[in-house]
Computed example of a mutant assay.
Amino acid sequence: MITIAVTAEGPDEPRVAISPETAKMLVALGARVRVESGAGSRSRISDETLKAAGAEIATNATDALSGADILLRVRRPSGDEIRALKPGAIVAAILEPYDKAAIEPLAATGASLFSMELVPRISRAQSMDVLSSQANLAGYKAVVDAASHFGQTLPMMMTAAGTVPAAKVFIMGVGVAGLQAIATARRLGAVVSATDVRPATKEQVASLGAKFVAVEDEEFKQAQTAAGYAKAMSVEYQAKQTELVANHIKTQDIVVTTALIPGRPAPRLISRAMVESMKPGSVIVDLAAERGGNCEATAPGQTVDVNGVKIIAPINLAGSVSVNASSLYAKNLFALLELFFDKQEKVLKVNWDDEIIKGTLLAKDGKIVHPNFISQPAA
């Protein structure tokens, strides 16, 4: 029988890599599921509910890991944790693969390391897309947190005493997090605008009832690759776009920035001068804080005040809604693990040539094997 281990995360990570629902489904695949006691407590998942779903509760991490075939984690495990597994075991987690100095020792253990951030962006893998499931929650929470710090209402209110104007919310970056931020701000009654360098996002923004803000010249119309990613823009275009954004930000009450580039520092979208141009009481939520931030005045993990403008720079914002984040992440993991099993024979049977498995596999047999990282310089 294949044994799947799940251990508790560190003090800064409230999410967990399993839920009662996925524990039941893993057992149905023929696996033995062993969870460290208390691993789900910060996501309101008790040992009792996991046990009722068919999981075994281990007293500690050592017992959970001992001789397991598969380890499921949210964050990257230590080398000692991996060495407690069977030789050549499978590890699936958010591994942060661009950190070569941390990854190489884990690869040397001989385990098959699956980095959930690397799941290919193809239709068949949508249910495994961790970046999307967690960014969706972060986009929602960013607007809710901004509203709580704003100190004014978001919707327009018409009362006998007068009219309260609607707040103006500007979303910078229209990926999964940005789209959810737009939708959430609209539901709360704000007047919403958004910007992105990819022309295809204009229609998405409009479909959610928001205004699109961008310099729409000929270069902008060609600013997207066939795969849907943004192209590098000319210095001239960047200057025009920066001027447009600077003038727009002056009038906004809340700004949410979401721009991230894998493996690189977050692009700077908001200068300190732009911050100082905003009205006192305005709020900026920087979802790129973990990569240095989209705002020049961002202090990762802190909330700072610049001339009365609050800049909120959360780390692991999805983790602040850990009940939902853990549930979705656990389903992402299960969708990937389904590919590892022969459902009829109920045994582990990995097709190493499968497009999703090849795209997500970071290291195997003691070596980094993902083509994007074989020669990757240290982060």
Rank of each mutant, 00 (worst) to 15 (best):
G366A: 09
I82D: 15
I171G: 07
A28T: 13
Y98M: 01
A101I: 01
I368Y: 03
A230W: 04
L113P: 07
H248D: 15
A259N: 01
V176L: 07
E203S: 12
T159M: 03
T298P: 07
D196E: 09
P267E: 05
A378P: 10
K221Q: 12
T159H: 07
S46Q: 10
A107N: 03
V174I: 13
A335W: 02
Q238V: 07
E355Y: 06
T163N: 14
R15L: 00
T195H: 13
A379M: 13
A135T: 02
L361A: 03
A330S: 13
T258L: 12
R76A: 03
A289S: 11
L287A: 11
F334V: 05
Q252G: 06
Q134A: 11
V304E: 07
A53F: 10
V169F: 14
K343F: 12
A297M: 04
S133I: 06
A206I: 14
A318N: 08
S326F: 13
S115H: 07
K24L: 15
G139N: 08
T159W: 05
V309K: 09
K358Q: 15
V215N: 03
I261F: 00
K100F: 11
I311P: 01
V205W: 05
F150S: 11
N307G: 11
Q252L: 03
V35Q: 11
G178V: 13
A92W: 00
M157K: 04
Q224S: 15
G228C: 07
S41N: 08
M1Q: 05
L269I: 13
D63A: 13
I70Y: 02
W352G: 11
R264G: 09
S327T: 14
V285A: 01
M116C: 14
